[in-house]
Nucleic acid binder design. Structure first.
Lengths: 222, 222
DNA sequence: GTCTATAGACTGATAGAC
DNA sequence: GTCTATCAGTCTATAGAC
């Protein structure tokens, strides 16, 4: 009982501090001071600083991945085992965008922690992300069912680009706001999700590869 | 003379070590050992570890930005002060992609260092990236000239997405290779540039926003 | 079992001799 | 400009109290 309290006090304090100040600026001593526990408690309960960070990140990403798969499953069941490509892409990027974007003040420690994790990407988090491929294969498979005639390679690129747009939007909120002088509304999560899904879907439902190559050759020749 | 030698020996050794092993695993002692200089020389010549990293990064990104602007300027001059949107986007993402992708063995220390900087994004590098907005404004302006009728907000999102796709491709080469079982060729820089430019240009030359919103509403209602 | 107190190894930074 | 010696701060590990 007392154990669980110490353990969760560390987790809560660490998540908040990392969310506020980033990984580089927060030491274990900061965390145990905020949690009101002893320095060695971190090592006792988690093994190391990196494993503490890993536990925080794994907890949150499992939740996101579960949400993604639930959306995908619901959509495919509603469509008789096959969903529209836009809906598949929405299940892929929607949970992440909803979890990390939205009005600043409303952002939970968990959301802000995940944004940090996306930006700073320390070693323990990178290791976990590298094991994410199996999860993505399920979406690649669903995309294949949605667009059975599309070249497999194009589908992988489409998935890759969809994630790219979503993640960069989370990471670089500030830059886009500055660049557009606040004209791009980074608080309207639904509109952003629409944009990302639309661009990714568009890329998958038109012959982009050939068109681009032609353009490049034209430019080089002409 | 001896000064410059020490200074550049540190820069060369640091760039190679960071490229090989990442920022987290390389200490100042590793760098001075590889450079054959004294530990205190780093602080004497650069002030701190972070300033050494910043100098490495600034040097390389200035070169990339110069290349970008040269391409843009050449294209706009050839087009009488106005370039095709695809050519503008190519000037934006081309230099970065060419600088960081391509066959593993051929990658210079500088290229591998910039990939690390993109993935690990330590504090000194983040600070420099945040000042990149002024440089991007020039591309936003060129995009406005290329598509004068397009809504300004769409142009910013297009620029944002183009960079997102390019950077994520550099960052997550490994994941896409794994996910596609090697079917996506990450060595063909020209083809990748074509893809990124094509998707971004497509997003800017079709009414994506409205189409997506319609799809979402349809889904919610039906 | 749980937790505290403490020690050890390593890091970046710096003062001061040369 | 270079180097030695040393600093304060960090994470990790562990002996031992409760």
């Amino acid at each position: 009982m007392a154990t669980d309290h110490t353990r969760s006090a560390i987790l809560t304090a660490a998540e908040r501090l990392y969310a506020d100040r980033g990984f580089a600026d927060v030491t274990l001593r900061d965390i145990v001071a905020a949690a009101g526990v002893n320095l060695a408690a971190v090592n006792y309960h988690f093994g190391s600083k990196d494993e503490l960070i890993a536990e925080l990140f794994v907890t949150r990403s499992l939740a996101t991945n579960r949400e993604r798969l639930n959306e995908l499953k619901a959509a495919e069941e509603a469509g008789g085992g096959r969903a529209d490509i836009g809906v598949v892409l929405r299940a892929l990027v929607g949970p992440t965008l909803r979890g990390c974007l939205g009005p600043d003040k409303q952002r939970s420690d968990a959301a802000r922690f995940m944004i940090r994790a996306s930006i700073e990407s320390v070693p323990p988090i990178r290791k976990i992300k590298n094991r994410e491929v199996d999860h993505l294969r399920k979406f690649a498979a669903a995309m294949k069912r949605a667009l059975p005639d599309r070249d497999e390679v194009d589908l992988y690129w489409g998935l890759h680009f969809a994630l790219a747009m979503a993640h960069q939007t989370i990471r670089d909120t500030e830059r886009l706001t500055k660049l557009s002088d606040g004209k791009c509304d980074l608080n309207d999560v639904d509109a952003i999700t629409d944009r990302v899904v639309a661009v990714a879907a568009l890329a998958l439902t038109t012959a982009t590869g050939r068109a681009a190559k032609t353009a490049r050759i034209t430019r080089a020749v002409g």
